[in-house]
Design a protein around this nucleic acid. Structure first.
Length: 136
DNA sequence: GCCAACGTTGGC
DNA sequence: GCCAACGTTGGC
């Protein structure tokens, strides 16, 4: 099973909203690299849910509940979307500042490419961050 | 609010 | 197909 990190601005779509919705279509991605990452997702893959701009912290876990399929909101038909289901909330959000000073986490893809909205997470990084966040 | 990083667009 | 100009993202 693979792991990922997805970003969302709380103003656009917050973790609170995600939990309320239970599941949501992850549409609106208009970046090829991010779209390629979504294409590689399998049902049951888990993703960290990161709040960008406001908060700048990982607040919970979601899982892939529908594979990559065309995004109806993309008129050109170039980009697709997946569906995410809400999972556990972090007991303690893991902040970007924390990640940046952690020897094992500071080279994470989403730190290095701050503009990429969907990025891969290694098994090690997954374990460490779950530990910091207080979830298993 | 500013600015760096980076992806995209369009002229040649 | 290259590259300059421009727009967007996101951290600070």
């Amino acid at each position: 099973m693979a792991h990922w990190l997805v970003k969302s601005e709380p103003e656009a779509y917050s973790w609170q909203q995600m939990q309320k919705d239970k599941k949501t279509g992850w549409s609106g991605v208009r970046n090829y690299q991010a779209a390629n990452n979504m294409k590689a997702m399998k049902i049951g893959d888990t993703c960290f849910f990161y709040h960008s701009n406001e908060g700048k912290e990982i607040v919970g876990i979601v899982s892939v509940s529908k594979l990559y399929h065309p995004d109806p909101s993309d008129e050109d038909g170039k980009f697709g979307m997946v569906e995410m289901s809400a999972g556990k909330s972090f007991k303690t959000p893991v902040t970007l500042a924390e990640i940046k000073v952690h020897a094992k986490l500071k080279d994470m893809a989403f730190v290095k490419q701050s503009r990429l909205s969907v990025s891969p997470v290694t098994a090690d990084e997954w374990k460490i961050i779950c530990g910091l966040g207080g979830v298993k």
